[in-house]
Design a protein around this nucleic acid. Structure first.
Length: 265
DNA sequence: ATCGGTACCTGCACGC
DNA sequence: TGCGTGCAGGTACCGA
């Protein structure tokens, strides 16, 4: 489900409910999403602790807690954090704060909740934030990689936060074929790609993210950027620029949508 | 060291 | 109605 714009929307929607609030209790109902963490120990360490801040790094959310602890949350494909909702069959954690109950729901269980004493390696080794990186650093990163651009945009060590939707949408806006080799992009196309990424992420955040099937923010509100997708899941529909039917192919086993006319090899 | 392919899970849409 | 298939916003791990 959630890529950078969705996770940022969730962060903004939750921040007023959690920042500065104390955790009264925590309950963990699913071992899988804890990735080896001990549910009772996590609950004991969380209870009574105040949340200092809620930050985002790429697609990760970090609840920064008193005493330097970090509750790390990744939403995987179907993870949701919901304030004041009723628990359902896929509710795997209930964190009760002074301000109400925060639920973690995740039907596919690809997400995770972990408690760390410091920023874990998985987060530390992420690439730069796409809305903060400068063009020169972005272009240097491109030159080092001989892989296809679509695969590179999904690689969180290159940039953190892009996923399948925004990789396809950025490549379309930059008019670059998803199979193009990163290291062979000239400065002009590299610039177009950089600008397209910044533009599409900014518009998506402003729209509250893309609700394809079930994404909602922390207050249960849907985003509406899905109505502005130009290629993602528009296979066979006319390109908004030239009318050519949008094509679907596979890159690194991920569905990849592009206009064969606007995005030449 | 870098790549692509596979596995992990559930739910849904589709064709028969 | 029910069953099989393929697909879905994610990452980690494996072997080449």
């Amino acid at each position: 489900m959630p890529e950078l714009p969705e996770v940022e929307t969730i962060r903004r929607s939750l921040e007023p409910h959690v920042a500065g609030r104390r955790i009264l209790a925590a309950e963990f109902l699913c071992l899988r999403v804890l990735r080896g963490g001990d549910p009772d120990e996590m609950a004991a360490r969380l209870a009574g602790r105040r949340v200092i801040a809620l930050r985002r790094r790429g697609k990760f959310l970090l609840f920064e807690l008193e005493g330097g602890l970090i509750l790390l949350v990744h939403l995987g494909m179907t993870g949701k954090l919901l304030m004041g909702a009723e628990p359902g069959p896929h509710t795997h954690a209930i964190i009760t704060l002074e301000s109400g109950a925060l639920l973690y729901d995740d039907s596919r269980q690809f997400g995770c909740l972990e408690l760390h004493d410091s920023v874990p390696a998985r987060v530390a080794r992420l690439g730069p934030e796409p809305l903060e990186v400068g063009f020169e650093e972005f272009a240097r990163g491109l030159r080092k990689r001989r892989t296809r651009l679509k695969a590179l945009l999904l690689d969180q060590r290159f940039l953190r936060g892009l996923g399948n939707i925004y990789a396809d949408e950025a490549l379309f806006r930059a008019r670059i074929h998803p199979f193009a080799v990163a290291a062979r992009l000239g400065p002009e196309r590299a610039r177009r790609l950089y600008d397209a990424i910044v533009e599409v992420l900014g518009e998506a955040i402003a729209a509250g993210g893309s609700s394809i099937s079930d994404y909602v923010d922390g207050n249960g509100r849907r985003g509406f950027f899905q109505t502005r997708h130009r290629v993602y899941q528009r296979t066979g529909e006319p390109c908004v620029v030239c009318g050519t039917p949008i094509r679907r192919t596979l890159v690194a086993q991920r569905g990849t949508h592009y206009c064969p006319r606007c995005q030449r090899r």
